[in-house]
Design a protein around this nucleic acid. Sequence first.
RNA 1: GCCGAAGUGGCGGAACUGGUAGACGCGCUGGACUCAAAAUCCAGUCUGGCUUACCCCAGGUGAGGGUUCGAGUCCCUCCUUCGGCACCA
Length: 860
Amino acid sequence: MKYDFAAIEAKWQDFWEEHRTFRVTDDAPGPKLFILDMFPYPSGAGLHVGHPEGYTATDILSRYKRMKGLSVLHPMGWDAFGLPAERYAMKTNIHPRVTTAQNIETFRRQIRMLGLSYDWDREVNTSDPAYYRWTQWIFLQIYNAWFDPRARKARPIATLEVELAASGTVNLPDAPTVSAAEWKQWSRKQRHDFLAQFRLAYIADVPVNWCEALGTVLANEEVAEWTEKGFTVERRPMKQWMMRITAYAERLLEDAAVLDWPASTQEQQRNWIGRSEGAEVRFRVVDREEALTVFTTRPDTLFGATYMVLAPEHPLVDAMTSPEHTEQVRMYRASAARKSDVERGAEKDKTGVFTGGYALNPATGGRIPIWIADYVLMGYGTGAIMAVPAHDDRDMAFAKKFDLPIMPVVDGGTGAPECFVEEGTAVNSANAEISLNGLPTREAKSAMIRWLTDKGLGRSAVQYKLRDWLFSRQRYWGEPIPIIHLEDGTLATVPEDQLPLRLPDLAKFQPSGTTESPLALATDWVNCVDPVTTLKGRRETNTMPQWAGSCWYYLRYIDPKNEKAFCDPAKERHWMPVDQYVGGSEHAVLHLMYARFWHKVLNDLGHVSTKEPFLRLRHQGIILGEDSRKMSKSRGNVVNPDDVVKQYGADAMRLFEMFMGPLEEMKPWSTRGVEGVYRFLNRVWRLYVADDDAHGLLVADGAPGEAFERVYHQTVRKVTEDIESLRFNTAIAQMMIFVNEATKLDGRPRSIMEPFVLLLAPFAPHLAEELWQRLGHAETLAYEAWPVYDAAKAAEPEAEIVLQVNGKVRSKLAVPADTGREELERLATADAAVRKYTDGRKVVKIIVVPNKLVNIVVAG
RNA sequence: GCCGAAGUGGCGGAACUGGUAGACGCGCUGGACUCAAAAUCCAGUCUGGCUUACCCCAGGUGAGGGUUCGAGUCCCUCCUUCGGCACCA
């Protein structure tokens, strides 16, 4: 009988579904293991060949671990809110819910077709009201929390209210001053407004990246993606929901260190957070009360600060500007405001104007001019810098263009490069009170910070590049933000027992025409009354970004049907953290950063038990087209999984994707390669099943030969070790070696051929189940014990010893394994081929590596 | 420009803590089976040389140095590719 993959695969997919083979209960025996895939956005295009790569990897691991006796949580779901469905709805007026449901149907069918062992009882869908109810609930937890800098963690906002009533802001660092007495006298609105500045979710009037064509704002992180696609993004100030992720900068950085994540991903997260140490320095301004505070990483160069620059948006620009410069400052600010951050960054040529104001360099006492320029960004540090042109490239470029003074204060010891930005020795840096001269940069920094601190002119400081997360989107197809804007200007939350706040149905999905989302057009939905205050109000019309649903989906898998909580605490403690997470490296920053942030807030508030959600992370590499270029419709090199499965079967598809090369590497598709593994599966089939039905099974009872037994034990060892370290390509190579050996044999002993099926099962589960059944087993092999190897039987009895003379191979020798050093040396020196090179020469040294080689070093 | 990862046959890729470079697969060549083809099976396949005894010799893991008895593996310099960041003071 021939290998009929189509019939076999359909049969076992039905079997697994019918028997719910891969369902895992919370009290399942064995240690828990949580193996997670990044869930897909169900696009209209269906699954592409990149998806099965990661999914097969986790599937192999899951199947293997089940056979090792672990209880494996391995779920799948849908990241189902998103812009493509909404854009499609704009064109067709078909509700995104409808297209999303269809797309999910396709994805589910395709994933099922690959024989992936998910527990479908745990499927989640982020656009399902029963799911987004809890996304909204988590939003409210975040909204109703503040970051207590003393505890370095989030606490309920109520704790802040208690503290304010008791002691005002006396004990709160960096907070506007309010006494307990004042607080108690304040109105509801005053208290509301004051608390708003502490909440982890807050509304701010910020310059956003507005995309007219999409009718929405984009997060800074998303701008590049859309501009690459040809959309234009402009800056405009808008009221937006923000999340205070910056409060977690330090913890996101610290806690990452213990994670087993790819180095490049760790690095990207570190860069994104962008921590830098330095100092804040206050500069007095000539003839004015206000002072300017700057952040610098090089306080040691303060003596070299010859001018200052403010960001055009800096609030003190007007105060610094003298009457005769007002017009040029106004014009410069106007032109800067029109430019997007991207445009600003693209222009390398420095622009700026003088304000007419002067500050005093606190170290030299000298008058230095104050400029504004858009190379200084309002969003970083204090939005103002001290410019040290001698030791900063940007300041140097600016100083040269506008003919500003340059004062070297660091000696690099290597002549006099135009602009020396590295560390060196301080020079020209002394006043009546302090001298840095002669100090290396590191010491000069701390000496300067000490002096500034003593004089009350500055302090050491840490800055982060990380910005707060722009959370709202002007879209329909996302989670409604459960907030009501009341007529008195305060915000109310939708009560928890009224969640989910459902999306209203709309007839059309076009942008509202204003900067509001299409939800603004649903007037019945928008206008409401707050049940608590009975004030009239308008619902928030912005929705959440697509990241929201994926920030916590792993938690919902643990308890997907719970209507009382987002996840039962006991179940959470049992299953968390995720032991292995696999997904694309395109999520190295955004998804993984946002999810970690939410997780930490939930952890602080006592809702989850671990500091970090994902312990071990791997990325699957991108699969290129057969021409080694990125797959794209326009190049016509896209491979459709449906076609591959139809022609070669799911097992061949899975096996090929794993055999192509290391999981994390980028690699090209190869139809020939698929045929290769397909041939391998046929060879496996024919090892067990005769072409002609009359002969039945080809396995026989009886003891295996020693050599075959050895290959088998070596195969068990290699496959086991390779699965553990996710090196599937070499595991498959070893199984091919085994099959090549088995093919040569006349009689194939059942005692070996049977457990080999189990080794193959994680990789080619349909074929393995079929063979297992034909071998006489009534049950699925999914929970059969994983084969163990015998190290003694796997060991080679003979070792081939390489005989070298001066490092060159001159002969080889077969000896019993573990032959002693003396014996090896004796055999080597006596070897005829070796003696051709050693006779008549002086032996300097003999290196013996047991079971490996003997190297004879001769003089001359 | 800065940071990170990586460069191995005609191709995808193996090679544990420094110890026979090229496992396994693809492709190719030859053979068996067949009227023939497909499928399958067997053998060969880094390059050059010499013999034609697949015996031996020389070279070979992006380039050039170095450490070592011995380097794909460790160190230095450079080149290339991919990924990320890009006026972050």
